[in-house]
Every structure is written in structure tokens, then in C-alpha cells.
Design a protein around this nucleic acid. Structure first.
Lengths: 350, 350
DNA sequence: TTTATTTCCGTGCACGGTAACGGAAATAAT
DNA sequence: ATTATTTCCGTTACCGTGCACGGAAATAAA
């Protein structure tokens, strides 16, 4: 561990009777070195315990790497805004290492815009890419292109089944549904619960909420087998329909109390919930959007399960930087992040 | 934000008609510069948006800074072991910047050992110090010494009332007690609950659990005013006494169900809890020690509130490094970390 | 053997900043 | 006016690597 003096490239040059140029060629094995010399250098490196000086290296090549981030447009108050926030956090840690970040947006409901964004990323010539893969097939195509160019990439949020990525940072979706159910019921059997869903565009192949719902349902089957699970669909862009849909459902099922949503839009229900207060009702949703946290504070929502997309982003960028600068692979390829339970009593510290 | 080209020290030298030597003198204000030149340089720096190249700087001076960490001995399975874990995490991020860390231990029940550790820290001549201040007065003395030497320091876990530190990273203690109460009761009124405590040495002046208990009690007064709160004391080194104490209490108060501890030792109750199973009982404790998380998994403990001391450690070290290397003050001086709620359903991802 | 090619390797500058050294210019002392 | 001091500033030699350039040595082709 403790080396009294730093071994430099010059030391092993002297030791082997070669020049630092040759040693450098060996270190980066860029050829033009005889077998004999190669072995001598390698032996000396081993023997003296040489470790390259990162500063000198970075200074010398003066490389300013670019990491491209490819995520859906982050409208204020959306899930992707949170993710984008992680870019700045990453900038603090790896920015000093000469890594810059650039942000490429696409419309999550328009596959064409995704294709266009991919093209722009390639044009920018990044050293690494972070991808939030919403369109499965298109993502695979893009991944293949990146591999061709030798550009490493990492996924956040969800990941395609195809391999070839450097790392993945996401949430254990199935488990999150399980956890969600436990928070909704408090561990006790409940007679019924309502699942509020948003109808998805068929173009968008990847839907994380499917797995969440599966975990939720399995928990209920185990702990509350007689529970009746209702499903209603709402249109996020039509507040009136939300009101109407919920009113209709509760008129027909007055016994139901608890409500759950598996995406980040639980805040859409706040107006209705406020008009129909019920101190015994539990409402559980996902993700620490500002609107959601406000609902938590005023008691409209009981609990949020947060996955901290900003952390995922930061870790993905850091993993890429580590690989780009030092060729170091991440310890784990698939990283499932912690799920945080937010209530009105701890939400203020997020 | 986007600077096309990096501004170097030479650029501002040329811009001002001075030499890089002079610019350097200004940058490190080591005098021998006329007022006129000083102003010119400062203006150019501002104007061109100069930012020093950390690599070149570190390479040139070859400094390897040392951050000393002063925390209680981290026996395996204790709270401080978690904190010590953060040192390695910090090493990954700031280690590449030439910052090394050294760890100084003391016995948290022996004030003499704390004094000795302080002396050893000063001998090592660190560029910054992280302190977990358990002995209030002694810590103030040490802080004064550090200030004298111009060594910046940061507190974790708790902080003395004296100012002069660079940053503090800890948990909102009072609020954590509040949150704890909410998790224990599920928001409903309960008839009674038992608080299990550990008798403290009077030498140790700083006790974080006091504030926690205050928050807990206040929550109960609001939400469960008629609740009877029991207090028992156990000796952590005597398992038999733990059994006896709990048996005795529950013999006299059979109506009580829920149990809470405000320190990290809830795992001490596991043997007793396992011998007296009760599916309706809620048991809440603090901190993500391995033994605690195991108890969560097998259902013995219902809920843990985690503050992630390793994160506190990492952030404290990073803040120090940022100040040492770039003289940048942390954004906030007092940082209250998030409190995470751990249940059997999300504990596997910690 | 001479000439043309490869193979292999040393030299030297660049990267951006640090700080010691010494000297010119400005001021003070004689 | 001359000398002694300050005050201020430019020059220069590093720090450890990366890499282009050119040339010596070894081999192949003539």
C-alpha cells in the first residue's frame, strides 16, 4: 500500500535501459516494440509496482470527453425532469475530470423524434452515452450503432433484453409493486382497492408499470386473497374525465377506500381526493415529483415510493466516466437502486 | 456554460501583458504584485472566465493531501462500521484527486482515548478532518486547535454548538423521532408502547437519542394522547438481563404491544422477540446495521429508519476535498440527510 | 554487396500550473 | 549624485505522460 516514492515511467525506462517512449508504447500496447523489450518492460512494471499518474496522463492528452444523455424531454414537474437533475450532480463529480455532458431530448410519444435524437448523438461524437430506452427496437438498433463505433453506453430506468451495455441503473420493478402493496394495506387484509391507470400509446413498447402491477397483484394474492382490485383508466390531459371516472367508480363501489397508481402521476388525483376526504383512506403512488411531494405534505397522498432517477443518472454517468478515463468496468453490471418510502414525516429532507 | 476553448493561465498573462509568474502570484495571492497588476489580472480572470486546471495544478505541486477521520472504533456490526464504510466510497471519488484518507479511532466510552486520538491526528498533519463529536467539551478544544493550524474540519452524525466548522452532515434528530412514531403506530391511536433504552455513561455528554425521544413523544401527544409510554433500560453486554427486563415489563403490562428503540441496537431484542412472537406487534428501530436488516427480513422487526452514515461520511470528505483543493465552500453548511424507511420489502436493495 | 523495406526505438515538445531565482525599476538612505 | 533597499515582475526548470517525428538497426530484395 504505502510506497515511499512514486515510480514513474522514467524509472522503468532506466531500469530496462530503454527510453520512456518505448515504455509508453508498451503501456498502451500500440505496437512497434520487440518481444524482448516488451517482456523486459512488463517485468520492470511488475517489479517496481508502477502505477500511472492520472493527472499527468489527463493533462498530457488534454482530452475533454463528452457524455451524451438521451432521455425524453423533461417538462417541468415530470419524472424526466428529476432524471435530468442528476446530470448536474454528475457534473460536479466528473466535471473536474474533464468530462462534459450534453443533453439530447426526444418526445416520448414520437418514435421519429427518438430516431432523430439518436442521429444527433452520433454526430456529436460522444465518448459515452446514457440512454433511457423507451422504444425497444429502436434502442437496439441504436445500441448496435454505438457498439460499431466502440462507444460505451449505459441504461437507466429500464433496460432492453439485448446485451452489450456497460451498466444499468434502475429500480427492481416487480419488488416495487410488492412494496407498494405493503404500504397500501399496512400488512392487513383489505376488502378492495382501486388501481388507476393511464392508457398507453401502443407505439411505446416499454412500460415499466406492467412489472410493478404484477408485484402488487402477487402481494395481494398472498396477503389479501379476497381483495377486489378495480381498474380504471384516465386521460392525463383531461381533468374533467378524471373526475368523472373516479366519481363513477366510487358510486358503484362505495366500499372501496384505497387507491394506487403505478406511474409518477398520482398528483393528477389530488383535486378529486381533496373533494372527497377520507381519513381512513390510503393513497400510494410513485416518484418524488414536486407535485407528488406536495400532496404528501398536505396529507392527500399517504405514501410515495421513490427511486431517485437523479441518482440513477449520476451513477450511470460516473460509471461511463470511470470506463472512459480508466477502462474500469463497474463492479456490478445491473444495479438495482434502493426504493425509498416517503411519508409526510420524512418528505422534507428529499 | 459552454466554453468552446479552455482558458489557461497563459491566456490571461497575454491579455494583461504580464507573465504567467505574476498571474500565478495573484491566483495564490502570495504577494509581490502591484495593486495595478493585481486588478488587471483579476479583471481578466473574471472576463475570460478562467478556471484552473486541477490536473496541471496537482501534477505541478505533487501534493497529496490527507484527510483525517476521527470516529469511534468501528467494531463489526456497529453503527460506526457503517460510517467507516463511507471512507472507501469517498476514496473512489476524491482519491483520484490526490486526496488520501487516514482513520483515527477512539473508544467512545473513554475520553482519554479521544484526547490521544486528537493528538495523533495533529501529528499526522492533515489538510482536513472529519469528526464524529461524542465528547462535547473535548471536541471544542480540538476544534480550536484545528482552527489555530488553519485546518478545516467537518462534523458528521451530531454537532457541537460551537461554530467554526466547514460543514455538518447529519440527520434531523427530532424529526426522526416523529417519523419513527408514525411508523410505529401506522397513524392510529395506540393504548401503549414500550421504549427500550440503554443507560449511558455520564462522561459521554452528547446523546442523539434525546432529541429523537422528544420528537417521538411529541408525535404521540398529538396523535395518541392517551398512550402510555413505558421506559426500560437494558445493558447491551448482558443478554440475560435483556430477557429478564423485558419479561418483567410485559408481565406487568400485558396490554402493550409495540416496541421502539432510539439507538442502533434494536437487534439486541431479537432473541426475546423471537421467543414471544406476535403478528400484531410493531417493532421500530434505527440504522441499517446488518443485524438489524436481518431482523427486518425475518419479520422480527417491522421497520428501520436509516440515516446512512456512510453517505454522511462521504459527503463530509468530499466537502473537505472541495475546500482543500479549490477553496470552495459547501452550498449549505448544515446538511440534514434524508431518512429512509426500511421494511422487509425494500431492505434487499440497501 | 548494395539498395529498399521493415521493424524497432530514442528524442523532444506539448499539456497547464508552480515556485525558486535573479534582475530591472522604483524608492529610500547616504 | 551615488549607493542601498524594496518592490515588483519575467524567466526558467520542473511535475509525469502522450505522441509525432525521424532515424538507426535489422531484414529483405536487388
Amino acid at each position: 500500500m504505502a510506497q515511499n516514492e512514486k515510480i514513474t515511467i522514467l524509472d522503468i525506462a532506466r531500469r530496462t535501459g530503454l527510453s520512456k517512449g518505448t515504455v509508453d508504447r508498451v503501456l498502451h500496447n500500440r505496437g512497434e516494440v520487440s518481444r524482448r523489450s516488451y517482456d523486459k518492460v512488463m517485468a520492470a512494471i511488475e517489479e517496481l509496482g508502477y502505477e500511472p499518474n492520472v493527472y499527468a496522463s489527463l493533462l498530457a492528452k488534454g482530452q475533454h470527453h463528452l457524455v451524451a444523455v438521451l432521455i425524453p424531454a423533461h417538462e417541468p414537474g415530470t419524472f424526466w425532469e428529476l432524471a435530468a437533475g442528476g446530470i448536474e450532480k454528475a457534473a460536479e463529480s466528473v466535471g473536474t475530470l474533464g468530462v462534459r455532458m450534453q443533453h439530447f431530448e426526444y418526445d416520448q410519444y414520437d418514435i421519429e423524434s427518438f430516431r432523430a435524437a439518436c442521429a444527433r448523438v452520433l454526430e456529436a461524437g460522444p465518448s459515452g452515452v446514457v440512454i433511457a430506452p423507451l422504444f425497444q427496437e429502436e434502442t437496439d438498433l441504436f445500441a448496435a450503432q454505438l457498439r460499431e463505433h466502440g462507444i460505451p453506453f449505459a441504461y437507466i430506468d429500464s433496460k432492453p433484453e439485448t446485451d452489450g451495455y456497460l451498466a444499468y441503473f434502475g429500480m427492481p420493478l416487480y419488488k416495487s409493486g410488492y412494496l407498494c402493496a405493503d404500504q397500501l394495506t399496512g400488512g392487513f387484509a383489505v376488502p378492495s382497492a382501486l388501481i388507476v391507470r393511464i392508457r398507453r400509446d401502443r407505439n411505446q413498447q416499454s412500460d415499466p408499470t406492467i412489472n410493478r402491477r404484477a408485484g402488487f397483484v402477487d402481494y395481494m394474492l398472498e396477503h389479501s386473497p379476497d381483495c377486489i382490485l378495480g381498474n380504471v383508466f384516465i386521460d392525463p390531459n383531461d381533468p374533467d374525465s378524471i373526475e368523472g371516472t373516479l366519481d363513477a367508480w366510487f358510486r358503484e363501489h362505495p366500499g372501496t377506500r384505497h387507491i394506487v397508481m403505478f406511474n409518477s402521476r398520482i398528483h393528477l388525483l389530488v383535486p378529486w381526493l381533496q373533494r372527497h376526504p377520507d381519513s381512513q383512506r390510503r393513497v400510494v403512488g410513485f416518484d418524488n415529483l414536486k407535485a407528488n411531494m406536495d400532496a404528501l405534505r398536505d396529507g392527500t397522498v399517504s405514501c410515495l415510493i421513490a427511486q431517485h432517477p437523479d441518482e440513477q443518472m449520476r451513477l450511470a454517468i460516473e460509471a461511463l466516466a470511470e470506463y472512459i478515463l480508466r477502462r474500469k468496468l463497474p463492479q456490478k453490471k445491473d444495479n438495482f437502486m434502493h426504493m425509498d418510502i416517503l411519508t409526510r414525516y420524512n418528505v422534507d429532507y428529499y
